[in-house]
Design a binder for these strands. Structure first.
Length: 456
RNA sequence: GUGCGAGUAGCUCAGUUGGUUAGAGCACUGGAUUGUGGUUCCAGGGGUCGUGGGUUCAAGUCCCAUUUCGCACCCCA
């Protein structure tokens, strides 16, 4: 047997049917981004590894796809390099596939700072790659749809991004839950419990609250090296419940000794207050257990899940105060979110939310009866196309059954038959595929009927 | 990186305590219907049973190794 072809692990082909639905999602997202005044950019699939490494935490570095240098990639290595994998990989790979769109964007901003008009609002819809083990809702190649504002500290940007989230999911028909938190609150909590150096440990543990529950989180905190004293102080924070009006004052009290913590609460309250006055469809909630793994977030953090389908987050983001600083442009704050198109697709498919009429593009197919007939059809086909009706002529004069089957499978609603008698009468026979009826009419009549929708 | 499960026709899968020529549905091709699809009926093609080794008179079935894929953990869109 010939070698069975396949695609690399975690990557997928998309059939025409899938592409029509995917494009529908991309179009809704893109249209919304444009409506809010964001401009498109694109960056290369690959970046220098120096651009990518160290931006996503230890786990992120591990999940980067590295590209082997072309030619003799061992040229620069020495025997002792082979003892240390990370040293070796630096010598044999200088490029990597992008892991997200935010870091390449930061690089783009730094490189093009003189040409950019700040605050810069950009959107970017491109695939990213992660060397993760694939599983449900997780792919090694997937699309992110990013919107970011860079060069503005205003919390109005946070509000705007949440409005975009609401807009997109409202139009797609996905019931969404927007969770909001702030890294400064988490930093404040770490300070108040007396473990300012253990922010990562604390956030990673409490991030699992929903999944593993209160008791397990406490256990995990202890495993991660938090003192019993600190854990006791943390407990009342983790169990905070009730309405926002009640939570905020309580939090203020708890974080009274932490300037940064109080600032985080202020920011979150401001955003929430704005949102409250707007007509928002999505449920938005303050979730103190929301942490998000990416290292570069410094302020607001946002994560969106689908209410009716468990698949992880379908959109996420936050504010980063100094991402461009790493590339030599300090004090430029940005905030952005990223829609996960592939997961949104999975949610919409599972909940059957795609519109029905995304099917075929061809409206009319001409049957091919032979060389003479096909030649006669060509000008008529062009006439239909010029009238804006997407039309095709079957390329081969094969059996009619075959041609009809083709039209049927592609959901082509009208089939035109022109044989010798039609050529003589200067008319055409059109078959309406959903009813099976057929009638003999002229070409102009057909165009008028289709464009006027008086035929069905 | 850790754990669990599965690889049989193009696809989805069945295959009994090991026992003739490995089956079904869908898809494909031809016919009923030479200018008529979607429904129906008839016929046909298509398999080194993931790969390598072992046990046995006999292996799709049991054992070992290997590989690929899926699921969960970690982390994430």
């Amino acid at each position: 047997m010939a070698q069975k072809p396949s695609v690399p692990k975690g990557t997928r082909d998309f059939s025409p049917g899938e592409m029509l639905r995917r494009n529908y999602i991309f179009e809704v997202i893109k249209k919304t981004f444009l409506k809010y005044g964001y401009l498109p950019i694109e960056t290369p699939a690959m970046e220098n590894l120096s651009t990518l490494l160290g931006k996503y935490g230890e786990e992120g570095d591990r999940l980067l796809f590295k590209i082997l240098n072309s030619g003799d990639f061992l040229k620069k290595t020495r025997a002792e390099d082979f003892k240390d994998i990370s040293k070796l990989s630096m010598k044999i790979a200088e490029k990597g596939l992008r892991y997200d769109l935010t870091v390449p964007f930061a690089r783009f901003v730094v490189q093009n700072q003189h040409a950019i008009n700040f605050p810069f609002k950009r959107y970017q819809i491109q695939p990213v790659w992660r060397a993760d083990k694939p599983q449900k809702g997780r792919y090694r190649e997937f699309y992110q749809c990013d919107v970011d504002v860079i060069g503005s500290d205003s919390l109005l940007n946070e509000v705007e991004l949440i409005l975009i989230i609401d807009d997109v999911f409202r139009e797609l028909g996905v019931q969404s839950i927007v969770k909001i938190n702030n890294r400064k609150i988490l930093t404040g909590i770490a300070e108040v419990v007396g473990e300012p150096g253990k922010i990562t440990e604390i956030t990673v543990a409490i991030d699992k609250m929903e999944k593993i529950g209160f008791d397990e989180v406490i256990k995990e905190l202890s495993i991660r090296g938090l003192s019993a004293n600190a854990i006791e102080k943390l407990k009342p924070i983790l169990t905070l419940e009730g309405k926002l009006k009640e939570i905020f004052p309580k939090l203020m009290e708890i974080l009274d000794d932490s300037e940064i913590g109080k600032q985080g609460i202020q920011e979150t309250m401001t955003v929430m207050r704005h949102l409250k006055d707007l007509n928002i469809n999505a449920k938005f909630i303050l979730d103190l257990t929301l942490a998000r793994g990416l290292d570069y977030y410094t302020g607001a953090i946002i994560e969106v899940t689908a209410k009716d389908h468990e698949i992880g987050s379908i959109c996420g983001g936050g504010r980063y105060d100094n991402l461009t600083g790493i590339f030599g442009l300090p004090d430029v704050s940005g905030v952005g979110i990223s829609f996960g198109a592939d997961r949104i697709y999975d949610v919409m498919l599972a909940l059957d939310l795609f519109p029905e009429d995304l099917q075929s593009s061809t409206q009319v197919m001409f049957v091919n009866f032979g060389e003479k007939e096909a030649k006669y059809c060509l000008s008529l086909v062009q006439k239909l196309r010029q009238a804006g009706i997407s039309t095709e002529l079957f390329p081969d004069a094969v059996k009619m059954k075959k041609q009809m089957t083709y039209a049927n499978k592609n959901n082509i609603p009208y089939v035109v038959l022109i044989g010798s008698s039609e050529m003589e009468s200067n008319k055409l026979t059109v078959k309406l595929m959903h009813t099976g009826d057929q009638k003999e009419i002229g070409i102009d009549e057909l165009i008028e009927a289709i464009n006027g929708k008086t035929i069905s």
